[in-house]
Design a protein around this nucleic acid. Sequence first.
DNA 1: ATGGTAGTTAAACTA
Length: 257
Amino acid sequence: MKIATWNVNSLNVRLPHLLDWLKTASPDLLGIQETKTTDDKFPRDAIIAAGYQPICNGQKTYNGVAILSRLSTAPQDMVTQLPDMLDDPQRRLLAATYGDVRMINVYIPNGAEVDSEKYHYKLRWLRALVAYLKTELRNHPKLAIVGDFNIAPEDRDVHDPKSWEGSVLVSPAERECFQQLVSLGLVDSFRLFEQAPELFSWWDYRAAAYPRNHGLRIDHILVSPKLATACQSCHIDPTPRQWERPSDHAPVIAEFT
DNA sequence: ATGGTAGTTAAACTA
């Protein structure tokens, strides 16, 4: 089984890329973020025609998440809000169970600038996420949480740690929240394996960041201990980032026995 | 320290 994540930065613009990538990568479960579309405008037919069953939690203009599945089991126990953030209008979470696998897809807030209002919203969101995962891990031995975390967990996940010091995506408080997820037993599947240095999942559109590989690894597939033992590989697929009019993120895909 | 680009949406917001 393959589980993947991709921030597509507008499903409307990126649908052709998504369909092409599904054909070659053929994930069984894919979490997508920043769909930027409401559920009534979700391109359901095109995705079903590609062999995938979608569920979505969309929003106009900003945010929006979805899960695509080519498994035979129907999604169950769908969740669209963090229990501690029920009044949050931003669509950033979608969870569902496929057979015995709990799939949680997140688009964690960016945070704008350290100490800004958006940054504190990000930390609030992360604390609510940690509390939610504590419960979810109790209920689901086989759990994967995937998505755009907007956190580079360590300096080796940053092209130039010095220039990023004090910024969102790398600040100590954000990294501490990521470590709290790890403390719950979640495993960064990418780091289960030997990886080349300077592998990133996001590159700014500006200043030719991609050709210079000025990137960060902020898109992750974290798995419960039981799934970690079944994990065979995890890699970032940079090819869609090289296509014409790309998302600023590359997909990440992990394989399980 | 600012601006560089992209998406959505119509001048500004988010990333």
